[in-house]
Design a protein around this nucleic acid. Sequence first.
DNA 1: TACAATCAACTTGTCTGATAAGAAGATGTC
DNA 2: GACATCTTCTTATCAGACAAGTTGATTGTA
Lengths: 231, 231
Amino acid sequence: MGPIKRVRLSERVTDAIETMIAEGAFAPGDRFLSENDLVKKLEVSRSSVREAVRILEVRGRVIVKHGKGIFIAEPPDEDRDPFTGWLKDNKAPIFDHFEVRLIIEPKAARRAAEKADDESVKGIEKAYGAFLASAERGDTAAMIRFDGEFHRLVAKATKNRTLYHLMKTMTKSLPEGWITSLHIPGRVEKTLGEHSSILDAIRGGDPERAEEMMTLHLANALKDIQASMER
Amino acid sequence: MGPIKRVRLSERVTDAIETMIAEGAFAPGDRFLSENDLVKKLEVSRSSVREAVRILEVRGRVIVKHGKGIFIAEPPDEDRDPFTGWLKDNKAPIFDHFEVRLIIEPKAARRAAEKADDESVKGIEKAYGAFLASAERGDTAAMIRFDGEFHRLVAKATKNRTLYHLMKTMTKSLPEGWITSLHIPGRVEKTLGEHSSILDAIRGGDPERAEEMMTLHLANALKDIQASMER
DNA sequence: TACAATCAACTTGTCTGATAAGAAGATGTC
DNA sequence: GACATCTTCTTATCAGACAAGTTGATTGTA
């Protein structure tokens, strides 16, 4: 074990406050504890509290108003960045999103079938299982999560970390429409079947089929989304 | 005119410090003035200075080290997304980088040949011309820039903004090795020839050839880099 | 001389206690 | 009821102290 990291008191106060907020006792817009309350509660000096509050203010977690108090800020649009940020700001047309994924993912599946080791396969199986379980209890939010996880792990199995991180970004900022796609009648069942085929191909080391199945999967999903949008 | 905005002293100190940094007397990594120096220079209390420094630290402009001082931070790599950030932090292996680009870019070139309008073609021609001019005067830095520009504009010509922004991210954070690739004897001339072929195919609306030429271009570049690394 | 321990002088980190100033409700006067 | 004042919250700033990390010079010793 290395030397323990000395952490500033003011930062521990920051953590403490963030924890309090995360615990849910305060809603955005609410007044938070005053500086003096925090001094008493956390038993630190006012300087430390003030520096902690400054930090949280810059981070956009609270808003401080002279004479009035400390207020909980609106939850910041998490994770701002050009690519991710752009995707979120512009609600990337779902067409564009699919066109890119239809280019990348079949090849990713191919490479995965060529290179995946036991551990990678196990991970993908687990994501598939989690998706299945979520589907059985009708938990759409969880399904979205594990669908993304499935695709990310396929990318990861290629051992190409650039590819993996790219897929991570793409699956974590999906365009509108994707969210509702799992509500399309039959889409969940098809997804399960298609994922299963992809998984089989990767497990069996069949690059050709892996690529083909991934293409099919994405093309089917796109087709269903298009159809549901036309109604 | 409305009521003037009361601005906290600590924020004015923040501005003052940022101005000092912007004026260029301090380079990234340099030690900045100490808290006491700032107290004397700006004639404010140490609390205000400390809060200002806290703000700048959270914003990533300075790094504070206990017992050592305040240091100018590396200019924040604007464009931070998990993907961009990861690329920069991890110096993506050049192999991974090329594998991904070999997947994406030929298809991008194909789509560009299908969809490019006159304006897009003109932009690509311009980037090609700028690369050529840079090559003639041996300006490698400019060549790298216009090479990236060429590839970005091809992606842009597809009208797929997701694809464009993705390519922007990739061409703006190139792995080690890329920079030196243009120093490989003959590489510049080959690049010019290959770019020219790609441009012709896009201009002529020949998707098949555009895809093929882009594949060739990237494969050749990779081959040369590999060869030069083995020496 | 070479080397190690000690010391002195910086630095940032934290605490205490004071005053200034904004905000808002209570209070008193008209 | 309308309005100015007062009180009591709040945050903002100040001043001065001491703790603790870092570094380089000084000193002591072999």
